[in-house]
Design a binder for these strands. Sequence first.
DNA 1: TTAATAGTGTCTCTAAGACAGTATGGC
DNA 2: GCCATACTGTCTTAGAGACACTATTAA
Lengths: 269, 269
Amino acid sequence: MASSPGDREFLASYDPRAYDAIAVTVDIVALTIRDGELHVLLIRRGQPPYAGRWALPGGFVRARDDGDLYQAAVRELAEETGLNAKDGDLERGHLEQLGTYGDPGRDPRMRVVSVAYLAFAPELPEPEAGSDAAAAEYVPIASLGLTGASGQPPGTTRRLAFDHARILSDGLERARGKLEYTSLATKFCAPEFTIPELRAVYEAVWGEELHAGNFHRKVLSVPGFVEGTGETTDRGERRGGPKPRLYRAGDARLLHPALIRPSREEDIR
Amino acid sequence: MASSPGDREFLASYDPRAYDAIAVTVDIVALTIRDGELHVLLIRRGQPPYAGRWALPGGFVRARDDGDLYQAAVRELAEETGLNAKDGDLERGHLEQLGTYGDPGRDPRMRVVSVAYLAFAPELPEPEAGSDAAAAEYVPIASLGLTGASGQPPGTTRRLAFDHARILSDGLERARGKLEYTSLATKFCAPEFTIPELRAVYEAVWGEELHAGNFHRKVLSVPGFVEGTGETTDRGERRGGPKPRLYRAGDARLLHPALIRPSREEDIR
DNA sequence: TTAATAGTGTCTCTAAGACAGTATGGC
DNA sequence: GCCATACTGTCTTAGAGACACTATTAA
């Protein structure tokens, strides 16, 4: 890989080894729902810079790594969440590239370009501390006091390291949009789920209550979104009413028609 | 920037200078419409690898560059198209991050991570050859024989260098989707345009004919999409009919309701 | 005069949302 | 008993698409 034809011209015009290098990292915005609330996986940094602050899990990409960026993200996610990957693909959950962040100065040590990935994970056991022995936790989004979310009053807010607050914001906005026109909400659920459970996912991600009856009918009317199992369940903290029916994810990846969230302030501009 | 606190621990755990480096590039998918057809800006490579092949314009990001990745893309685009930037923002047209491509082996020389940007440009004069003296041209998308597009028969197809065919495909799909729910189609137009001209943009990007009457009414019914100037024009190669009215882009960035393209095969799955 | 085009009117059908109503369970 | 909840029915309204129609211009 280091001596193919054209190397001489290439290295004459640019050789990063001769200048200063750019580091490439992969960072993960891993979202899940616990107790009806949207959570994100964060680690507490043990080392400066930003020692003691919360940050997105991530790690450096090494030039000689076998895999591509997606696989680097899969590996990182698996390490922190126990979410298994088979043949480089997630068995449950969802992982997609979110965006790349490369502002100079975003890492005080050197120029770092970070490729962020967005993950949707079903409810999982507590994360284990990663190899760097830092604490890893699912943290409620509402406790982070991001702009647009109404959570803690400012001041009690946990500030994230680096530009991770912005990356997380972008991830949230992406997630909210994706629930509208894809079937990815089911990735937050167990393999079998009820319509009210699915509605709880939408309510947690969108941060607003939905009309139970209309939601129910709408989900069933979208072809391929869910398929019934014929079973019912009485699990969950139910406060009355009949046993809800169980469904599995259908084969549709895109929803048509889409489920549009009620409040889109962007409309009015 | 090279000796902040924490450097010692950081460099002990990872120093890209001590290993082999990753190069970061910015590549641009610059789309425009000429003669009613969608074109992409390509350069012809003068040097190996892929000498003589067409490729997306792009360039290396240097660690000590002042700007962020967006500004690197703006600079690259300005160099090749003459599209001016003021205060780091484009005066006309549109530029957004598309995605990042980092498969090992995508560049035979070394590990290169490429941040791709997607640009929508109004009709511009012929591009000048870049500083590397390679030819730069707007090439019709249809002549590239991409999967999904029905253009040239295979065999006469121009194959792009590196993984640029995939990047271009992703850019096209993004562009097609963006026209549905944003007002970005106006970025392909002159500052004043007619509804039929706007329709030609949609038809060129989506690759299908639209119903003129319904399109007209729909565009006017979306609040903030376009605003009338009160003028009419007789420019363009008209083949009959009254002089169309002139419009400017309105202040809406998102279209509500959206313009959905007729054929979305993804629906049926 | 013919043909193509800009722009509008109208009809049908789908779907979203508001609301009510029924059945089933927890307490 | 009460009440929350799972669903289902119905009404109104917005909007998409098909089609028809008029007015205006090029050739």
